[in-house]
Each structure stands twice: as structure tokens, then as C-alpha cells.
């Protein structure tokens, strides 16, 4: 179980130590230090140090251009997330959140998941964070509240958070299937097949032959289902598929039931939102 190398263990420890200390120093404290600007700068330096230690733990892509961009995006996403939780102004927090989302989608792009990257930017950066900004700006028209400006328990919060991060790192590093190095060349389709497909879960339940679930399964969930024209099955495994077509094929053959389930859940949520938002005509005032 414990295949972790001592060097990695040290780096894990250093990452969490520097990260935790740096985050604590960056937090907006109730009692001011003698020189808050200096303390913040030192904290920021420590977080950058922690981020670079984190980078050394895993491998990065091989071509030099990809390597440079990978390092930029990775450091940006970690440092911006630290800045997001320590910013004094909620509007700044939201903006740092946008930076985190953008750099994360840059990492997705480098991993060959273009669709996911574009989707993340459209949904999170383009819509959700803008809604956050909208709400923050409308709600805080007469000055910022104390609970928004100052951290309540910075020491306890950073300690707990970074103990959790340390546990997470150890688990990731000791689990051989999730090693950074072995994930290098994985295509998006391969990642999707590593999850347990919903049809296998349904098969385990052993429905009777005439049950509607098993009928749907037998008709639609065979992989010989007509794939989109752009999906080229003759390509050798190493060559990347046209990405969107491959993703669509995986979603509507291997993961059909999961997709339908997600669609149903979203539809129910939509109906619920409409019911909640519509004012009741002739009823009691809410």
C-alpha cells in the first residue's frame, strides 16, 4: 500500500506547511499586524512556493510549449484560489474565482478535453460568476459587511483545510491507478471508460428479460450502435479521435443511462425553479 517515496512525502509535507502558513498570513485578520502589506506579500510568496512544490510532485506534459503552459496554468490556478479565499472585497474574490476557472480550463485544454474546457468557461466564467458579481454588487450597495471583510477563525480554518489537502495528496500518491505519470497520455474517451458505465450497474441488478430497463439496454446500449459520421473507428488507438464526436459517442452508448438520468434531474430542477419563482395568483402573499 505504502509505495510513496520519501522525497514525495517530504514535498507533500512542505506543500501543506507552506500553503497553510501562507494562506493564514494572507487572510484578512481582525487584529492588524504591524505591517499587513508585508505579511500579505510573505504569505503570497509562501503560497507560490507551495504551488511549485505541488508541481514537482507530478509530471508535466513532454513538449516544451505544453510544459510552459502547463506550469503557468497550474501555478495560476493554485495561487488564484488562495487569493480568492483571502480577498477582502467579495468582488475581488469573484474575479479571482474567474481566474481559477480560466486556468483550470486551460489545463483541460492541455489534457485534450477541449469540449470540457469550452463548457467550463461558458457555464462558470461566463454565466455563474457573472451572476455572483451581479448579486454581490446589488446586495452591497451601502458598504461591505464585517462578516464579508474579515476572516472569522483564520488559524483553525487553514489548519483544517491543509490537513485535508495533505490527506488527499497522500491518497492520490499511494493509489497506483491514479498516479500522475500513468495518466499522461490518457485520451478523454479512455478516462470515460475507467468510470463504471451505468449499464454495468444496471446489469448487476439482473432485471427480468421483459422488463423495460433490460429492453432499453439490449436495444440501445450495444456499442455497435450507429456512431456519428465523424467518429472514425478505424483509427489506431494512439491517434486522437475527433474529440467532440468521441465524447458524444461515449455519452450516448456507454453512458446513455447516466446521461438520461442527468437530463431528468435537470428537468425536475427546472420545473421546481419555475414553480418556486412564479408568484401565486389569488393565493396567500408569500
Amino acid at each position: 500500500m505504502f509505495e510513496i517515496q520519501p522525497l514525495q512525502l517530504t514535498q507533500c509535507l512542505l506543500t501543506c506547511l507552506f500553503g497553510g502558513l501562507g494562506t493564514y498570513m494572507m487572510m484578512p485578520h481582525r487584529r492588524y499586524f504591524a505591517n499587513p502589506g508585508l505579511v500579505f506579500a510573505i504569505g503570497l510568496g509562501l503560497v507560490v512556493l507551495a504551488a511549485s512544490h505541488l508541481l514537482m510532485l507530478g509530471g508535466s506534459p513532454v513538449p516544451i510549449v505544453s510544459k510552459v503552459f502547463f506550469n503557468i496554468f497550474a501555478i495560476f490556478s493554485v495561487v488564484a484560489s488562495a487569493l480568492m479565499i483571502t480577498a477582502r472585497d467579495p468582488v475581488h474574490s469573484a474575479l479571482w474565482f474567474a481566474v481559477v476557472v480560466l486556468s483550470t480550463s486551460g489545463l483541460f485544454l492541455l489534457a485534450g478535453a477541449g469540449f470540457l474546457a469550452a463548457g467550463t468557461v461558458i457555464v462558470y466564467a461566463g454565466a455563474i460568476i457573472v451572476t455572483f458579481l451581479f448579486v454581490i454588487m446589488l446586495a452591497q450597495s451601502e458598504g461591505k459587511a464585517v462578516y464579508d471583510r474579515l476572516a472569522r477563525q483564520p488559524a483553525q480554518a487553514s489548519l483544517t483545510g491543509f490537513i485535508l489537502i495533505w490527506c488527499l495528496l497522500i491518497v492520490i500518491l499511494t493509489n497506483p491507478g491514479n498516479n500522475f505519470e500513468s495518466n499522461q497520455s490518457s485520451e478523454p474517451v479512455e478516462v470515460s471508460t475507467r468510470l463504471t458505465p451505468a449499464k454495468d450497474l444496471v446489469r448487476m441488478r439482473k432485471f427480468p428479460v421483459n422488463h423495460p430497463v433490460s429492453r432499453v439496454m439490449n436495444q440501445n446500449l450495444t456499442t455497435e450502435l450507429a456512431l456519428p459520421e465523424t467518429f472514425d473507428a478505424t483509427l489506431p488507438p494512439g491517434v486522437p479521435q475527433p474529440h467532440v464526436a468521441g465524447l458524444g459517442a461515449a455519452m450516448y452508448t456507454t453512458h446513455l443511462i447516466s446521461s438520461e438520468l442527468v437530463g431528468a434531474i435537470l428537468f425536475v430542477a427546472l420545473a421546481g425553479a419555475v414553480v418556486i419563482a412564479t408568484p401565486r395568483v389569488g393565493g396567500k402573499p408569500a
Binding site: A98, G114, F115, V121, I122, A125, M137
Partner: peptide, 23 residues
Amino acid sequence: DIGILYIFAVGSLAVYGIILAGY
């Protein structure tokens, strides 16, 4: 491969310039 989605993604960021200028 995602050509037009990329344009939509970038276009959805354009709102930041305006909303931040206003704020």
C-alpha cells in the same frame, strides 16, 4: 474541433469588461 464553442466561450467573457467598468 470545438471551433464555434470556443468563440462562444470567449464571447461569454466579454461581459466582464462592461460589468467591471460599471462597478
